[in-house]
Design a protein around this nucleic acid. Structure first.
Lengths: 238, 238
DNA sequence: CGTTGACTTGATTTCAGTCAATATCCGTGG
DNA sequence: CCACGGATATTGACTGAAATCAAGTCAACG
C-alpha cells in the first residue's frame, strides 16, 4: 500500500478525471478516494513494458496517459497484437484472478502514466464498493464482445478487409485532420499492422501500395494518411 | 417477476447446486434465494433457440442442464461457433449492458434447462449482492482469456492444429471412455467442427481421413473417437 | 558516407477454399 | 423388408489468397 499520490490540488483533478472513467463511473468521491489509497501511480517511458507474458499477474492497471499495446507471443515466436489500450481503459485484468500469469505483454508505445491496483486488493475493494465490480463486469462484457467481432473477422474475412477494419478502429482514437487527409497519429510500421490483423508485413505493404495507386491513402515510413475515408468504410462493410 | 419455481424440496436441491456454480459461489443461501425470486426457469428442446442474433438482449442465462452453442452469422451468411456452453455456465451476457442486441444466437444442441435473469434486474441484484458482481466479473475475465487464446490460434496456426485443439477442448467436457478409445459424447458433424475452427467441412473431412489412416482416430457419421489421445495432444502442442 | 531499419516488389510455394462428382448412412413409408 | 430420398461424408481437380523467400530501394542518422 505505497502512497505516492500527488499533492492535494492535483489529487482533486485526478479524482474528477477518474470519476468519469468506465471503471469508476458512479462511485461517490468518498469511495473513490478510498480506492485510490491502494493505487500505485506508475510512469513508463515509450518502449518500456508494464509487464511481460508469463510473469505472475500482480496488478490491474488503469491507463491515464499514453498508449499501450498488448502483445501475445506464440511458442514459435510469432507476435500478435491483442489490443491497443488508450487512456481511461483498464488492462492486465487477469490479475483479478488469483494465482495466474499475464497471458501477454503490455508495451508502452508512448510515454505512459497509469494507476496500478495490487492483485490482492482489487476483489476486496469490489466487495466494499459494488459499483466498482459492476463497472468492471460491464467493461469485460464489452471487451469480450469486441474480441468476438475480431475473431469473426479473422475467421471469415480477407486480409484487405481486416486491414480496413483495423485502420478504422485506430482512427476512432488517433485521428488527426490535416490539409490533405486524415492522419493516424502514431508510429505505425507495416509490421505493426500485420500483427494487428494477423498477417505479414509483405502482404500489408502490397495492399497499401495498391490502395495508394488508387489514390485512397497516402502512406510513408511508419505513418498513414487516409485520403478517402468513405471509401475505406465501404470497403470494410461488404 | 414471474414465479414458476418448483416446490420447496426441489428448490433446496436447486439452491445447493447453484451455490456451487461460478456465478453464485460464495453467496449466502439467503441472498441466493432473493436472487432466485427474479429468475425465470426456462426449458428448451434440442434444436430450439434461446435467442437470436440481432434481437434485443433481454436476459442473461445460467445453463442448468443440456448444452448450447453460441453462433454468429456474418453478413455473407457464413456461420461461426463462438463457444459451446455447458451446465453451470452463463451466456447471453450482453444483456447486462443496457440497450444492446444479442451479437449471436444461442442454439440448444440437447434438451436444456436454464434460468433467465431479466435484463433490468441483473445490475440491481449485483448492487445488492457484491459477490454476484465479483463472480460475474471474474467469469468474464476468464472468458476473455479463453477467447484470446482462440484468437491467437486462429491467427497463427494451421487448420489441423486448430482442429486438434478444438477436439481436446470438447473432450474436457464430453469425454466418454469406451472399450476402443475416447468418444466425444455429442453429435458432431464435419460442418460443426468446421464452424468451430473457422474452416470448411471439406478440409475437416480430409484431415480426419488422414488421421484415420494413421490410426489415431476413428470417425463416423457425426461422431468421433480418439484412439491416441497422447498423439493428439502432442499435435496440438507444437 | 556507410550502416541500419523500414519498405517495396517479384517469384515461388503452400495451405486451404471452391466446385463437382460420388459414396455412405439412416430413417421413412410403401 | 426393401427401396427411396435426404442428409452426411469422401475424394479429386482446380483455384486463389496469402505466406515465404529473395532482391532490391529508400531515407534517416550517427
Amino acid at each position: 500500500m505505497i502512497k505516492l499520490l500527488p499533492a492535494h490540488i492535483v489529487r482533486e483533478v485526478l479524482l474528477k478525471k477518474l470519476s468519469q472513467t468506465p471503471l469508476f463511473k458512479g462511485l461517490p468521491d468518498s469511495d473513490l478516494e478510498q480506492v485510490l489509497e491502494y493505487a500505485i501511480p506508475t510512469r513508463l517511458d515509450a518502449e518500456a513494458y508494464f509487464f511481460h507474458q508469463g510473469t505472475p499477474a500482480q496488478h490491474v492497471y488503469i491507463l491515464l496517459e499514453g498508449q499501450i499495446k498488448v502483445l501475445q507471443l506464440t511458442p514459435e515466436g510469432q507476435q500478435v497484437v491483442m489490443r491497443m489500450v488508450d487512456p481511461i481503459e483498464i488492462f492486465g485484468c487477469v490479475a483479478a484472478l488469483s494465482g495466474g500469469e499475464y497471458p501477454g505483454s503490455a508495451l508502452a508505445t508512448k510515454a505512459c502514466q497509469a494507476l496500478a491496483l495490487p492483485h490482492g486488493d482489487i476483489i476486496k475493494l469490489m466487495g466494499r464498493f459494488p459499483q466498482l465490480a459492476i463497472n468492471a463486469f460491464q467493461i469485460m462484457v464489452k471487451r469480450t464482445h469486441e474480441l468476438q467481432d475480431r475473431y469473426l473477422e479473422l475467421a471469415t474475412e480477407t486480409v484487405e478487409k481486416r486491414l480496413a477494419h483495423a485502420l478504422l478502429r485506430l482512427l476512432e482514437k488517433n485521428a488527426v485532420e490535416t490539409p490533405n487527409g486524415t492522419l493516424i497519429d502514431m508510429p505505425l510500421s507495416r509490421q505493426d499492422l500485420a500483427e494487428m490483423v494477423g498477417s505479414t508485413l509483405y502482404t500489408i505493404s502490397r495492399i497499401l501500395s495498391a490502395w495508394e495507386n488508387k489514390g485512397r491513402v497516402k502512406s510513408g515510413r511508419e505513418q498513414i494518411t487516409i485520403l478517402d475515408l468513405a471509401w475505406l468504410e465501404s470497403l470494410a462493410q461488404d
